[in-house]
Simulated assay, not measured.
Amino acid sequence: MRTYSLEILEKYRRIPTTTISDALDRLNIIGVITGLKPIIDDVKIVGPAFTIKEIHRKTNTSEFRVTEALNQAEPGSIMVFDVGGYTEASTWGGLASLSAKIKGIEGVVVNGAVRDINEIRKIKFPVFARAITPITGKSRIATVSINTQIEINNVRISPGDLIVGDGNGIVVIPYEKVLEVLKIAMEIEEKEEKVRILVMSGKPIIEAERELGTKI
């Protein structure tokens, strides 16, 4: 698994996904997965992607390989499930969340549905999903591949790409662009903090923008 230094992870942990999205825009990188919401409040996840591709089809339970994927995922990683946006059955639930938390998985992102949200909230495990349903994915969802490149909403995600998630959503930073995106994001944060200070001092925001030569 591709890894990142603690310094890089902590710097990204302090930057909101909104700022990272702006940095990605400057580099013309498509990296925001829209429509995924956190199950718990005040959540922040940062870590390398461990990807799982799934499809909806009538199948037997042996093809529903969530526990196999969980067994392969390494502590600190973020499990990213692409179920093609299928939300009529869940691919993740409470027991999987408990096991993932004990193992040290950073969080889970599901382009599909999850269930057992009360259990997930009780243990405060970070899960992002497109929908919630009580219906199991067993016999309805099949795992196609584990830890290969996937694509969600035109965002390509390779194993080891950096995933950052918070209350605003999920962003994906390609492995080879992590340092460049971080540099730009930190510059944006610095400028916005200067604007914030001027606004708090009573200056109209449009004047603060002009003074600092920036646009919020």
Rank of each mutant, 00 (worst) to 15 (best):
I152Y: 08
T18V: 12
G167D: 05
F64S: 01
T87A: 01
I78F: 00
I188N: 04
V109S: 14
P75I: 01
V46I: 10
V43F: 01
L98T: 15
E209W: 15
M79G: 10
I141G: 06
G76M: 11
D116M: 00
I29D: 08
Q72N: 15
S201A: 15
F125V: 03
G202D: 11
R14D: 07
R156A: 13
V144F: 09
K203R: 07
L198N: 08
A69Q: 13
P48Y: 02
K138L: 09
E189R: 13
T51K: 02
T143N: 06
V66D: 12
E193Q: 12
G169M: 10
N111A: 09
I170S: 13
S158E: 09
L24G: 02
N118S: 08
M79F: 06
R26E: 11
V195E: 04
E7D: 12
E151I: 11
K37W: 10
V178C: 15
I117N: 03
V46G: 01
K44Y: 02
L212D: 04
N118R: 07
K44T: 05
N153Y: 11
D42H: 01
D25L: 04
G167M: 05
P204W: 12
K101S: 02
I206D: 10
I40Y: 03
I152V: 00
S158M: 02
S5Q: 06
I20T: 13
G107W: 07
D116Y: 01
I205F: 09
S97P: 13
R121D: 10
T133A: 05
R121C: 04
K183V: 15
V43Y: 05
M79D: 03
K53S: 12
T51D: 01
A142H: 04
I146T: 01
D166G: 09
W92C: 08
S62K: 14
I45P: 02
G112W: 14
E193D: 09
L9E: 01
S77W: 05
S99C: 11
R140Y: 05
D161K: 00
N71H: 14
G47R: 02
D41A: 05
N71C: 12
K183C: 12
